[in-house]
């Protein structure tokens, strides 16, 4: 008995060590860094909560922080609507038993998930290119030439354009999860509904949808965490300056800029950078906890 206890510990240990070294330690040390002033080269100086005071007290920082936070919320809402709606539609279509070759579609829809974010960003930048991009070209062919835009260069469309690229890449994940959820719905329910004369659409809204709500919840949490810590896709498409006019500036790019400095030579400010990261950590942590609590209360009812 004693031996097996040690054996269990042995199994947990490697994962625990890995987690501590690569996740826990960097996390705690970066939280700690937010209390120091450091340009990344010289010595660190302890400054208490001065970095947070600067972040929220200095309008140059606070305006950027709340601007980025607002963009993050918009980015999240756009992504979740696009991604869930598309994934749900595709899953429902693939789940219709009469259609052949659904296995092929399952793989195809999941394919973009396996691409590197940088590759996806690059492909979409080419699609959106105002001069030779396929989007404006297709609009010309469809007679919509008057509505052509510099999609990534326009403050009104840039963030949505990135959200579309982001949703395109990750639609595969909720798609697979919805599909699994749909397959878990007992077949008798549909048979009973069919006997009662319910149409396919009615079956979908009355049976399928309510029963996959828990999946929807998990997906929302994943997308929320992913979007509020997002950086790569925006960096790949419009860089780290939030161009045009801070319309694509999210917490991740604001953090990167502050932490590592700008091309022009703006000195790296690791302290304020870490303070931004700490705020991101708090926002994500609190929101996810609240979300779980809310869903628990709902399921308790």
């Amino acid at each position: 008995m004693k031996r097996s206890k040690w054996l269990y510990a042995g199994f947990v240990l490697p994962a625990l060590v890995l987690y501590s070294v690569f996740m826990l330690y960097p996390l705690i040390s970066s939280l700690g860094l937010s209390l120091f002033s450091w340009n990344g080269y010289g010595p660190k100086t302890y400054v208490g909560f001065e970095n947070f005071a600067k972040l929220f007290g200095n309008v140059n920082y606070s305006a950027r922080f709340f601007g980025a936070l607002k963009n993050n919320v918009i980015f999240f809402v756009e992504t979740i609507i696009l991604q869930n709606a598309t994934a749900l539609l595709l899953a429902a279509l693939v789940n219709i038993r009469r259609i052949r070759g659904t296995k092929l579609f399952r793989s195809l829809y999941y394919l973009p998930c396996t691409l590197s974010i940088i590759v996806v960003g690059y492909i979409w930048t080419l699609i959106y290119n105002p001069l030779w991009g396929s989007l404006n070209y297709s609009m010309d062919l469809l007679g919509l030439g008057a509505y052509k835009l510099a999609w990534l260069g326009n403050e009104k469309t840039a963030l949505l354009a990135i959200a579309i690229a982001n949703a395109w890449q990750y639609t595969g994940t909720p798609f697979v999860m919805f599909l699994a959820g749909m397959n878990a719905v007992p077949g008798e329910l549909y048979e009973a509904a069919e006997i009662d004369g319910a149409s396919v659409t009615r079956q979908f809204f009355r049976i399928t949808l309510p029963l996959i709500m828990p999946v929807m919840f998990i997906i929302s949490v994943i997308v929320f965490v992913g979007n509020f810590s997002a950086f790569e896709i925006v960096y790949a498409m419009t860089g780290s300056t939030g161009a045009p006019g801070y319309s694509t500036d999210i917490l991740g790019t604001f953090f990167y800029r502050t932490c590592f400095g700008s091309r022009l030579g703006m000195p790296p400010d690791m302290g304020v950078g870490a303070a931004i990261a700490t705020c991101m950590f708090a926002i994500i942590g609190i929101a996810v906890a609240a979300w779980f609590k809310m869903s628990k209360r709902e399921s308790d009812l």
Binding site: N60, Y61, R64, G153, E155, T241, A243, P244, G245, Y246, T258, S262, R263, L264, G265, M266, P267
Partner: peptide
Amino acid sequence: MYDGSPDYSTAIGNTVRA
């Protein structure tokens, strides 16, 4: 003019785009 936010480069970019 590089060690504040926005730095010169970002500011002129924003100006021209506006």
